[in-house]
């Protein structure tokens, strides 16, 4: 047995799940488990109760209409990667999901689990922030700009769960990541989107938390072309530096990634639905 003991529960309703999480300060939610279970094995966390969210209806399913794509928190990456409606509406999000970790993990790991964990080297925070998504929780709706607060830190309060992520459908979107070749985690990534909220550029992996590249956004707002990014650079101050990449290299990757993500955004436009089906 490589995992310390805990009590497993699989509630069928959201109310029951929230009651279980309230019942004990050491209770924790279990989504896909692909980060949490390795962390349990390393004794990085010692929950008393694991509340498995797999059966909760509010966290499941994908809804697509003319304006938005709504993805249940418990949707595995493999489903996000292959769902034809997501691929049509937000191709960069499907392509991102198809490159998270490796196939076995993609069958279990979930979008809600990933954004609630907010690993700086995770993929989804870039899409959520870059597309200006809204996170629906058990208590409120949180704009992406207010959700990702710091290293492994989000606006979620104790006992608050992500139910769904609502993405506005973009006119253009592209994502590029420079992944660590051994782990697959993001060294630096860039998500570029143009849509109802204007042009947004999100950088992940480079800093302690995903952030918007405001200089790139300002340049692209008036001129959504590669030429607008000539001479673009990101200050290295405050970026992560480790054995894989220095802060200066990550800053460089952010600028190069933004340019490449823009090229994808221009080359692979989403399908647009003019009238609601």
């Amino acid at each position: 047995m490589s995992v310390p003991d805990f009590a497993y529960r699989r509630p069928a309703t959201l109310a029951e799940a929230l009651d279980l999480l309230r019942s004990d300060p050491e209770a924790r939610a279990l989504a896909g488990g692909q980060t949490l279970i390795p962390a349990l094995k390393q004794r990085m966390t010692r929950p008393s109760i694991l509340v498995d969210l797999q059966s909760i209806p509010e966290m499941r399913g994908i809804e697509v209409d003319a304006d938005r794509v709504s993805i249940g928190a418990m949707t595995p990456h493999a489903v996000t990667a292959t769902d034809p409606r997501i691929r049509a509406a937000i191709p960069a999000l499907a392509a991102m999901a198809a490159r998270v970790s490796h196939p076995q993990v993609r069958n279990l790991g979930t979008m809600g689990g990933s954004i609630a964990n907010n690993d700086p080297a995770a993929d989804y925070p870039a899409a959520v922030l870059g597309l200006g998504a809204e996170i629906e929780t058990t208590r409120r709706r949180i704009a992406a700009d207010d959700f990702f607060l710091g290293l492994f830190t989000t606006a979620l309060e104790p006992g608050e769960l992500v139910l769904r992520i609502h993405f506005p459908r973009p006119d253009n979107c592209g994502y590029v990541k420079f992944a660590n070749p051994a782990s697959g985690y993001v060294t630096t990534g860039a998500f570029v989107a143009r849509g109802p909220a204007g042009v947004r550029v999100a950088i992940n992996g480079a800093g302690p938390v995903v952030f918007r590249f405001t200089d790139a956004e300002a340049r692209l707002a008036g001129d959504f072309t590669p030429a607008a990014l000539d001479g673009l650079s990101l200050p290295a101050a405050g970026l992560n530096s480790d054995i894989h990449a220095s802060a200066a290299y990550r800053a460089r990757l952010a600028a190069v990634g933004t340019r490449r993500a823009l090229a994808i955004a221009l080359a692979q436009p989403p399908e647009q639905i003019k009238e609601s089906a």
């Binding site: 497993y8 279990l30 279970i37 498995d52 076995q104 993990v105 279990l108």
Partner: peptide, 11 residues
Amino acid sequence: AIKSCTLFAAQ
């Protein structure tokens, strides 16, 4: 396909 070392039997 999943990795059975990263999933509890109860799940």
